[in-house]
Computed example of a mutant assay.
Amino acid sequence: MVPEPLLPDSGRRVFVALGDSFTEGVGDRDERLPNGVRGWADRVAEKLAKAQPGWRYANLAIRSKRLRHIIDEQLEPALRMKPTLVTLYAGGNDILDLKTDMTALMAEYEKLVALLADTGATLVLFTDFDVKVSSLLEPLKKRNSFYNRQVRDIAEKYGAVLVDYWCLDAFHDRRMWDSDRLHMSKAGHKYLAGQVLDQLGVPHKIRPKDWEPPTPLGLREWERQQRHWIRDWVLPLFGRKLRGVTLGDELAPRWPEPVKVPRKGGLKKLAAAASAGAETS
């Protein structure tokens, strides 16, 4: 059952997305778009524009950002935009850092939510998903559970819309994940966009992939995939940690200022026009 629409029928329509790689769109590759990715938030913005013309959209999320970075770098610009819809996913990278004090983290998260809720915008929050990356990360499950309990309580306290990512069974299929096993694939981003739109009561035609059951991996194939995953993702990740750098250090927000989303052609149309203008200038 689709809920009643939560968004205004008229007036200002400004959607601002805050967060890290989850919201930037990592895993959903598209070289035609800023930072080479698309993601669920772009898809939500495009469906909003089709349902209600006039929506403007900014996406300030950058991969690898911790909660403190989101507060320091994204909050003030978001407030200046006077949003009517805000999505926030923050804290996932902090959870992966075993030095993080989870109680202190969630206290800061609540302060951020309170400031966003004070704008009067419709606010969308997300729980975390228990990604089955490796048995080495199983100790993080308690931290994930604590985070999710806190997010649910905070969403209720501040009247936020909650997308309970933890409970979305579709993400137990490995095809919903990119090759790094930490970020959603294109199919995962599309599915999540549909979940967000459902919670907002916005019509759409996004449907889950009609896949055949996944083929069980033989031992040899499993070992091959493990070797590739360690070589391509795990070792580079530890290398970056040792050097004190992240994948987001040299990146700017994908849509740093609210752009009017075309009803036809979507954000790819805007990106193409911007690229053509840059080439002729």
Results as ranks from 00 to 15, higher is better:
Val161Cys: 06
Pro216Arg: 14
Phe129Trp: 10
Leu270Thr: 14
Asn148Gln: 07
Ala107Met: 04
Ala274Cys: 02
Cys167Phe: 06
Leu137Met: 11
Gly39Trp: 11
Tyr147Ile: 03
Ala51Asp: 11
Lys111Ile: 00
Ala49Cys: 04
Ala49Tyr: 09
Arg63Tyr: 02
Gly25Met: 06
Ser64Asp: 15
Glu279Lys: 13
Gly11Trp: 06
Gly194Asp: 07
Leu112Met: 13
Ala114Trp: 06
Gly248Phe: 12
Val261Lys: 08
Leu267Ile: 07
Asp20Ala: 14
Pro203Met: 04
Arg149Cys: 02
Glu110Ala: 02
His204Gly: 09
Ala61Trp: 01
Arg13His: 10
Tyr109Trp: 11
Leu116Tyr: 11
Thr127Val: 01
Ser135Trp: 12
Asp128Glu: 15
Thr119Gly: 01
Ala273His: 08
Gly120Trp: 12
Lys142Tyr: 07
Val261His: 05
Met1Leu: 03
Leu251Lys: 15
Leu182Trp: 00
Glu31Ser: 15
Gln195Asn: 05
Thr23Ser: 12
Thr23Ile: 10
Arg66Trp: 13
Phe15Val: 05
Val234Tyr: 04
Ile230Cys: 11
Ser179Leu: 14
Gly120Pro: 08
Gly159Asn: 06
Ala17His: 02
Pro214Ile: 09
Arg174Ser: 01
Pro139Asp: 00
Ala114Met: 04
Leu112Ile: 04
Ala160Gly: 03
Leu125Pro: 05
Ala90Ile: 00
Val163His: 04
Glu257Trp: 09
Thr103His: 12
Leu48Ile: 07
Glu257Pro: 06
Lys141Thr: 05
